[in-house]
């Protein structure tokens, strides 16, 4: 099952890469499709064992993908823009108050915690330094610590709820 899934995903990625290459089958030519299948199979043969390592397929649910897109273009993008402007100001003023703080977002899956950590890292001002492998607690370098001990809302807003809805 991971093998087939990876090959299908690889095939789709190949089709995206060779998007308007011919006109025989919609937008793709026949040899491209053949090589796309081959590429998917090869990619699955090499990387398939790790792609679905835990063998849970809840990300196949399209609702989660819609939620993910909403999240990416909605709250996440706004937060990122705000934080960027904030850091831009800090670049000029030089007003920093750095700290490495620990938060416990209570996420269980690897994908979820990864998504949260990446969201946190992508919003400037916060940077995931380390992760506790057992309890999924994140250590975050915070460029301007408002109050200590840190609250989750201060650092990542509503991200954990979104991530829980998407990935768990």
């Amino acid at each position: 099952m991971p093998f087939i899934l990876t090959s299908i995903v690889g095939f789709l990625a190949y089709l995206v890469l060779t998007f308007p290459s011919g006109s025989t089958l919609g937008y793709w030519s026949k040899p491209e499709i053949g090589f796309g299948i081959a590429a998917g199979v090869i990619a699955a043969a090499i990387g398939g064992r790790l792609f679905c390592y835990y063998k849970n397929y809840r990300m196949l649910n399209p609702v989660r993908w819609v939620l993910f897109l909403i999240y990416a273009f909605g709250p996440f993008f706004i937060a990122m823009a705000k934080a960027n402007i904030d850091v831009a100001m800090r670049v000029f003023t030089g007003k920093i108050n750095p700290a490495i703080v620990k938060i416990s977002p209570n996420l269980k899956t690897d994908l979820g915690i990864t998504m949260l950590a990446n969201s946190i890292t992508l919003t400037p001002g916060t940077l995931t330094v380390d992760i506790d492998e057992d309890t999924n607690e994140l250590y975050i370098h915070w460029i301007y610590a408002k109050e200590l001990p840190a609250k989750i809302e201060d650092i990542c807003g509503t991200f954990p709820e979104w991530v829980r809805r998407i990935a768990e």
């Binding site: 990625a13 081959a38 590429a39 998917g40 990619a43 990387g47 792609f51 690897d110 990864t114 380390d130």
Partner: peptide, 26 residues
């Protein structure tokens, strides 16, 4: 490396190979 790096490597590793094949056959 840490769990974050591992998860991301697993989830985009296949794309590197697909892209390599794309570069080779084109």
């Amino acid at each position: 490396m840490s769990k974050i790096v591992r998860t991301v490597a697993a989830s985009i590793g296949w794309f590197v190979f697909v892209f390599g094949i794309y570069v080779i056959v084109h």
